[in-house]
Simulated assay, not measured.
Amino acid sequence: MRRTHYMTFRNFFNKPSFKPSTKPRPFKTYSFVPFSPLAMLDPTILTIGGIVLGTAIIERILERWGVIDLVDQFAKVMRFILPVTFYSALIYFFATFMF
């Protein structure tokens, strides 16, 4: 238990205290930004990104070939699949990322 050091108001302003009131304690510091760009090199994230990129390239190739009906079908399917894939990958990334 610590002893309380009493000082009068007059002594407080005229004479500096000769001993510190608290001892300095060592403390650990933590970073609030644990994100590393290398964490994006997860094989699952890269696979999902490759599949999405591959379907986009296939869609462009089919558009160049003039198969507009098939491109429209791809666009309708991708309009649903791309957001679902993106948010699923984002949830997976933060669920498996070690903070």
Rank of each mutant, 00 (worst) to 15 (best):
R3H: 12
T4F: 03
H5K: 08
Y6N: 02
Y6E: 06
M7P: 00
T8L: 04
F9L: 10
N11K: 07
F12L: 10
F12G: 02
F13W: 10
F13K: 10
K15I: 06
K15W: 02
S17C: 08
S17G: 09
S17A: 12
K19R: 15
K19P: 00
P20I: 04
P20G: 04
T22E: 12
T22L: 14
K23N: 09
K23L: 14
K23C: 01
P24V: 08
R25H: 10
P26Y: 04
P26W: 03
P26S: 05
F27N: 02
F27Y: 08
F27A: 05
T29N: 07
Y30L: 11
S31H: 13
V33S: 11
S36D: 13
P37H: 05
L38H: 04
L38G: 03
A39K: 14
M40Y: 07
L41C: 08
P43N: 02
T44R: 13
I45P: 04
I45D: 02
I45Q: 09
L46V: 15
T47N: 06
T47L: 09
I48S: 06
I48W: 01
I48T: 05
G49L: 09
I51H: 01
I51K: 06
V52K: 02
V52Y: 01
V52C: 11
L53N: 08
G54I: 15
I57H: 01
E59A: 05
R60G: 02
R60D: 04
I61T: 12
L62N: 09
L62M: 14
R64K: 15
W65M: 14
W65Y: 12
G66M: 12
I68V: 15
D69P: 00
V71T: 07
V71D: 01
D72Q: 13
A75F: 00
K76V: 04
V77F: 07
V77S: 10
M78T: 02
M78S: 11
M78E: 14
R79L: 11
R79E: 04
R79S: 05
F80V: 13
F80C: 05
I81K: 03
I81M: 09
P83T: 02
P83R: 04
P83F: 03
P83K: 05
V84C: 08
F86A: 13
F86M: 14
Y87D: 05
S88P: 03
S88C: 08
L90V: 12
L90G: 07
L90F: 13
L90H: 06
I91Q: 09
Y92W: 10
F93V: 09
A95L: 14
A95I: 10
A95C: 10
A95Y: 10
M98K: 15
F99W: 07
